[in-house]
């Protein structure tokens, strides 16, 4: 299967197989007007199988979102058909408006216009807690 290489845009590589649609959703890629290729189950020496997303337009990628979903993803910035930059991700210390608190007693549930803030509480276990009420995130990824 061949997918054309892109001239100016972003390639998200080393996505855990099966997770590309989550990333498509959280990065709001459906709102883009350009070509977006989602390539699933690509053979990988390191991972066995992986997903890749190619975005055929320069864009600012929210690295916090990607880091939260999977810090092993690599972000390649392509200019004039050449890779200009390769970014490795880290678990973000703070998430703003990426996920919402599910605790019915939390003020952000009663007042949804407040920024949803989550803070990294345990980097080994990838645990985040609501900055308002301390409720732990129930991760679905």
């Amino acid at each position: 299967m061949n997918i054309d290489s892109i001239q100016n845009g972003v390639v998200l590589d080393h996505i855990q197989a099966g997770k590309s649609m989550d990333i498509y959703k959280y990065l709001h890629l459906d709102e883009l007007d350009c070509s977006v290729a989602i390539i699933k189950n690509v053979r990988s020496r390191r991972m066995g199988k992986k997903d890749i997303i190619k975005i055929d337009s320069p864009m600012e990628v929210d690295l916090d979102v990607l880091g939260y979903i999977d810090a092993n993803i690599t972000v390649n910035i392509i200019r004039d058909g050449v890779r200009m930059d390769k970014k490795h991700l880290e678990l973000p210390r703070k998430l703003v408006n990426i996920i919402r608190c599910k605790n019915p007693r939390c003020i952000t549930v009663a007042e949804p216009q407040l920024d949803a803030i989550f803070l990294l509480s345990d980097s080994d276990k990838h645990t985040y807690r609501c900055g308002y009420c301390d409720t732990e995130v129930d991760r679905k990824f």
């Binding site: 007693r105 939390c106 003020i107 407040l114 920024d115 609501c130 308002y132 009420c133 301390d134």
Partner: peptide, 27 residues
């Protein structure tokens, strides 16, 4: 004091004076 958890944390984002949490729900 507020019945909702985290309300003083929210308040602190809007306040120009010190906020003391006098109790936020069961938190």
């Amino acid at each position: 004091r507020h019945p909702k958890e985290g309300a003083p944390y929210a308040a602190a984002q809007f306040s120009e004076v010190p906020i003391i949490n006098a109790g936020d729900g069961g938190h």
